[in-house]
Amino acid sequence: MASGVKPRVKVPKTAAAGEAITIKTLISHNMESGQRKDKEGNVIPRSIINRFTCEFNGELVIDVTMEPAISTNPYFQFDATVPEAGEFVFTWYDDDGSVYDTKKPIEIA
């Protein structure tokens, strides 16, 4: 499913240096598990996002390997440290080779 994929990320606009912030991410995706069957009894082929990463200024925050047991519209919530002003880069990797990404800048208050 390469169409209609829309990443949504919630990151505070500002943070104190060294502060831990909570990040929430959601991406719209069917996450077809490869277990379901259609009306004719044929297996619907698997089509999921298999990896999600979050980096800040090139340094890794979290790297998630996903299996078909992750729900439709994968949601993740995690904490990140903000050492300086910069940019969060969120990347999702689809089974079909598509890569979806979104960026969020953050400033030091």
């Binding site: 831990a20 912030i21 598990s33 277990q35 980096e55 800040f56 340094e59 890794l60 925050v61 979290i62 790297d63 998630v64 390997t65 996903m66 299996e67 078909p68 047991a69 992750i70 729900s71 994968p74 949601y75 993740f76 919530q77 995690f78 904490d79 990140a80 440290t81 050492p83």
Partner: peptide
């Protein structure tokens, strides 16, 4: 998930900037 047709669910790898080694998600 031991009772799923495929038991694997997810693997979280934490980098140096992870403030806490914790995460939440939704699973099947």
């Amino acid at each position: 998930a031991a009772g799923n047709p495929e038991p694997g669910v997810a693997t979280f790898n934490f980098g140096p900037l992870a403030a806490a080694q914790a995460a939440s998600t939704r699973i099947r």
